[in-house]
Design a protein around this nucleic acid. Structure first.
Lengths: 334, 334
DNA sequence: TCCATTTATGACAACGATGTCTGAAATCGC
DNA sequence: GCGATTTCAGACATCGTTGTCATAAATGGA
């Protein structure tokens, strides 16, 4: 029925162990022997059973990707990056949605590890910051790499972008266009990135010698509705801002919608900037000036780090990109 | 090191085979024995090795989900549905992006089957219609279920929604609001759904006694830009439509953007309708009237069909939903 | 030339479960 | 009360690989 390593060994006239050596690129196989085996593998269309390899060997050729993020776009890019590198390494990806709020999370992750024997785990934000998951993985000695972690954890590798610098870049861009009153919509308080983006906004203002005005900063929650509400409050101010920087695209879309409902022209009456460069950013009118997070690259790099033989800890930063579209421009008063 | 079935059997004072029986809910285990085993499993925190079960048994407790769709939102919902049901059945999901254009697709799928021994496969559109994949799966006798297939294939189960009826519903909704000149933006010509939605549009017009005007129908490609272009052409007509029904949300967003750029008010100057109810639909202004595809439910149901013990072929239709938001309204002239 | 090392291959156990077979104990029918 | 049937549990082979160890041939250094 199934083609096994035994069939291949017979066809090539060698022992199964030698076939195994070729399959795993081990040393001590003569070039000519290797050729014969390769030919037999191709002729029989042989794919080794992952289950058997996992059971017998110390590797499972599988890694798990844990995520709990409600942005399909983000998840998609993460999966894409992890998958791309896994493919190159000849490893399968097990995508595993989890609930960071759940009490049984650590137990679930433990069960996953036991069941699948995965060689390593990629953690994407916010699973990166679930202490019980980290503890469980460490207890079992499973390798893992974190993508955009919010907390520090010097013991394992991570990849991330500089949210502070990105928010600084965007704010500076607006300042350079002549804006002096720039509204800011905070992200969800539970997200580490929220603070960092806020900090970048302040830093850019400071550097430009513009004083920080708390009334120009409104709480948001990374969703459309909170962006809309924040815009309403900001535009109702006695001295409204000439630009609003929302700390993600969904909220920026909310700002945009509210501005439209007032009949305001963007960017002439008010500039709007977002953050993340989700698909949405180019699907609203006008398309959003935003920050492109290198999500796919982060995921790819994380997987590369996970699967490399060395075990030293690396914290790698990847560059972001300021994407200027037509939702921002010079203010009328400038 | 690892907790095995042997440890459990020792702790419970039974043979490993009896533990296996309890694990697999087989008959012929006394209630009291079962309890002892369950207690031991819980105490030792035992999770059976998938690799060993796969190798020894006839099941692998894994299914594969094949997709090649460039809408993250759609994929996300599909994964979510498949995953939810898999979890209920105690089975792992292997998400596998593929390239339907690739020559080596069938070979890749074959390799996947051999490597992983998956118990079954879920095919999502457009992988549902790759003849070589279907042939490969059948050749190997692997069970599979298709989600929203474009082609007929009586031999295997499928789940789908009625695109014709949905487009008919939307068109009828517009007609009921008083529209008589309704523009239509076609989807990508390679997609089966495009024809079906077009047909539903015609059917509704026919029933209402409104003649079909080819100039009101424009080719699109399911993306933002093509929606924009189609809107431009339609609005430039000597007798422009009072409503535009785009056959997906991305194109509807394009229509919306173009209307905004002309300073038109939606829905008072022109109504706009989409299809799919993607996240985008509620993130544009005004939010889109659209058709909600039950994607997650389709995926869930497909997985349920895949994993049920019966092997009869079922073709199951799931209901869609007309979602009325504020991008459509009565025409001025009515 | 001879011994030590490196290179190359194979035999066989092991991984951790399930499938098959066997047999003992409990239950049933009459 | 006895044989037939059902219920329950264990011994052992097996799944398809890799790890370990043994061994033979080739190579190198003195």
């Amino acid at each position: 029925m199934r083609v096994t390593i035994k069939d291949v060994s017979k066809a090539a006239g060698v022992s199964i162990k030698t076939v195994s050596r070729v399959l795993n690129k081990e040393k001590y196989v003569r070039e000519e022997t290797k050729k014969r085996v390769d030919a037999a593998v191709a002729a029989l269309n042989f794919s080794p059973s992952l289950a058997a390899r996992t059971l017998a060997g110390r590797r499972s050729f599988q890694i798990a990707l844990l995520y709990d993020n409600h942005s399909p776009h983000y998840i998609h890019q993460v999966q894409d990056g992890v998958w791309a590198r896994s493919r190159e390494e000849g490893v399968r990806m097990l995508a595993q949605p989890v609930d960071v709020g759940s009490d049984s999370l650590a137990a679930e992750v433990g069960g996953l590890i036991d069941e699948t024997h995965v060689d390593g785990v990629i953690l994407s934000s916010p699973v990166t910051d679930a202490p019980d998951v980290l503890a469980e993985l460490e207890r079992r000695g499973v390798r893992f790499v974190r993508i955009s972690p919010g907390t520090n954890h010097a013991l394992t590798s991570s990849v991330f972008m500089d949210d502070v610098q990105a928010a600084d870049d965007m704010t500076t861009h607006l300042i350079n266009q002549g804006h002096k009153r720039i509204g800011f919509v905070l992200g969800h308080p539970n997200h580490m990135a929220s603070d960092q983006r806020h900090f970048g906004y302040r830093r850019a203002l400071d550097r430009a010698g513009i004083s920080y005005e708390p009334t120009l900063v409104r709480q948001g929650a990374f969703d459309f509705a909170s962006g809309r509400d924040a815009a309403e409050a900001l535009i109702a101010l006695p001295a409204p801002p000439t630009a609003i920087f929302a700390s993600n695209d969904d909220m920026a879309a909310g700002v945009l919608a509210y501005a439209h409902s007032l009949g305001l022209d963007v960017p002439h009456d008010i500039s709007v900037a977002g953050f993340d460069d989700t698909a949405l950013a180019s699907l609203v009118w006008p398309p959003l000036t935003t920050i492109r997070q290198p999500v796919r690259e982060l995921a790819y790099t994380a997987t590369k780090l996970l699967l490399r033989p060395e075990t030293d800890v690396i914290h790698q930063r990847l560059p972001h990109e300021l994407v200027i579209r037509s939702s921002t421009g010079r203010p009328r008063t400038a």
